[in-house]
Design a binder for these strands. Structure first.
Lengths: 150, 150
DNA sequence: TATTGTTATACTCTATAACTATA
DNA sequence: TATAGTTATAGAGTATAACAATA
């Protein structure tokens, strides 16, 4: 049974079809990350921290594209489990310097393996060419919507 | 500034890039629909009702892919504003038959115009060929993830 | 069907503390 | 200095949506 049967007119909207598929993919990813105890945003935070090195919460929030007010709770959870550490910046004591720990790097490696597996499975219905197309088109849409001021 | 700069490693994951773009598109759609007083799920409900004709809440929930428990609140809102009517099915009085009203059809036409406008704008960064590719790939992913039991 | 509650995410508003610039 | 303005975090509250359990 193909999806257009459920809502023929909506299925003619590229935006609707796009969003509907992505929400399902997101759910699959969230379930996979839950097996290692991470929320999707927490995985994005660990991944970004690992790549960029220690940084302040504000910069981290901007890069991960999470609200500055909401990142506190994500970091609280990560810190509680020892995956990150927070220290006051001696040069500006308002700021917290967030650093990924060894345990955080281990968990990140584990969760990336889980995601690699899930991703390979989820995208197995697509050819390499189609995956490249999807990535390119998605990036263009994201950047384009950003430029439009949203 | 291109999006990969924010999170280089995550941006190499097709799933992440896909979901990130779709969430932004979804937000743009939600804001557009808010101007006519509709939630995205309410628009999907009206669109489906208009296309399929009167049907029971359970079938409606299945087609729109909304939880049967959650659809009650969406329908309450639509009924309060006169966009739908609910009547007990005389053949099975446990069931409610949901019907879109003339006011509902008017609002649907208006909201579809809004969406057409927003959609043209959002996808203007893509060629016709790319839009077709995106729709085809998204549909394949959605159906594929469904077959995988998610 | 409907209700209640939980979770994830995103957004708004406010509070506190600490920094910066200037009178 | 003293004051005003800004910034970084933190917390509370709200809204949408998906889901589970139950009446």
């Amino acid at each position: 049974m193909s999806s257009p049967e459920y809502a023929p007119r909506l299925s003619r909207r590229p935006g609707f079809v796009f969003v509907r598929a992505a929400l399902r993919i997101r759910q699959i990813y969230a379930e996979a990350l839950a097996t290692v105890g991470l929320l999707p945003n927490q995985h994005a935070i660990l991944s970004t921290l690992d790549e960029l090195g220690p940084c302040h919460q504000k910069e981290l929030a901007q890069r991960v594209v999470v609200d500055q007010g909401d990142i506190v709770a994500y970091l609280d959870g990560l810190q509680h489990n020892g995956y990150i550490s927070r220290e006051r910046d001696p040069k500006d004591r308002r700021r917290q310097i967030v650093t990924i720990t060894d345990a955080g790097r281990e968990l990140l490696a584990e969760s990336d393996q889980v995601l690699d597996h899930i991703e390979a499975d989820t995208f197995s219905v697509l050819s390499d060419r189609e995956r490249a197309q999807l990535t390119r088109i998605s990036t263009r849409l994201y950047d384009g919507s950003d430029a439009a001021g949203h």
